[in-house]
Every structure is written in C-alpha cells, then in structure tokens.
Amino acid sequence: MPLLKNNAFVADQFVNLGDEEALPETGKIIVSFTRLAQEWDSLAKFTGVLGLRLSNTDKVESLAPYISQIALIVLSFPAFGDGRSYSLARALRLDGYRGELRAEGNVLPDQLQYMRQVGFDSFFVTDRFPLQTWQAAGHQMSLAYQRGLFRQAQETEVWSTRQQGFAPWEEQPHAG
C-alpha cells in the first residue's frame, strides 16, 4: 500500500511495534497509545523517532504530556463514512501539534482534500489509483469558507480574503 506525502509516493521509514515486541535501540517506531501511556518512562528516553497510533475513540487531550516528543501520529478511517478522525486531526492541530499526521484505512481520492484541510499530511492509500489521480484530488476546490483550517492545499480562505486588511487565519506549517 503506497504512502502518499507531498504529492509523491514515498517509502515509509517507520516500523510498527506491537505491544509485546521489544523496544529497539533506535530507529523510527510507531507504538499504540496504551503502550505509550504504560511505558512512558522508558519511551521518554528512546533515542530514535517516536510515532503513535491512535484509535478514533482515544481522547486527544490525554496526549498532552507526551505530545512534544512525538513526531508522527497515525489516525485511521475504519470506513470512509466514519468521520471521527477528521475531528481528532483538527483538534490536534488546534492544540498545536506540528508533527506528521498520517491517515490510513479508507482513504479515497474524493476525501483527500478534506483530510489535508483538517491537518493530515501523509496518507496510506489504495493502489487502485495512479499518482496523478491523487495529485489532482488534493485540490479539487480552490476555495474554502471555513477559517482556521490547516490549509497546506492553498485554498483561498473566502471570509478573510473578502475583508480588506485581514490576513487569512493560517496555521503554521509543520516541522516534520
């Protein structure tokens, strides 16, 4: 399953670590929220790069103690109609999370722009569609009425653009 990032298919450098698997010396790993909470003492000292997989029933606010050390958060879409992760992503971005935010599960071209707008910046996608389809899908609409979106897709924010003297409510681009 290809990983889409910055409009290209890229290799995934992270490794999923099962809850029972031993912690490696270093490297890029993804752990569950359960493990993160239970083994924080040792994970806090981990010298590699730490990623986290959230379930869409986890509470974002309980992440606060850990968030500054997390470089990747993976959120899932168990069905394309299950929209909980849109709200989780937006809440994470509003709370100031600036690491990579990855969508997996049912990610379809016609949802890609919404996902980018709420703050996702990498996507595990099905291999049914060629790269060009995904590249086009990310910006089908050039405008958005809502403010405070994570607008990496460069949509014009209609409300602030209409008003002279107001800059769009831009989120800072992330570091990862």
Binding site: F80, D82, G83, Y86, Q113, Y114, Y145, Q146
Partner: peptide, 13 residues
C-alpha cells in the same frame, strides 16, 4: 450556509 458548505471536518458525521 457558507460555513457549513463542504466543511472538511463535518462532512462525514
């Protein structure tokens, strides 16, 4: 109407 049109967070309620 404008705010809710294609709202990315609230289109899969």
């Amino acid at each position: 109407r404008q705010w809710s049109s294609l709202h990315p967070e609230f289109s899969y309620l």
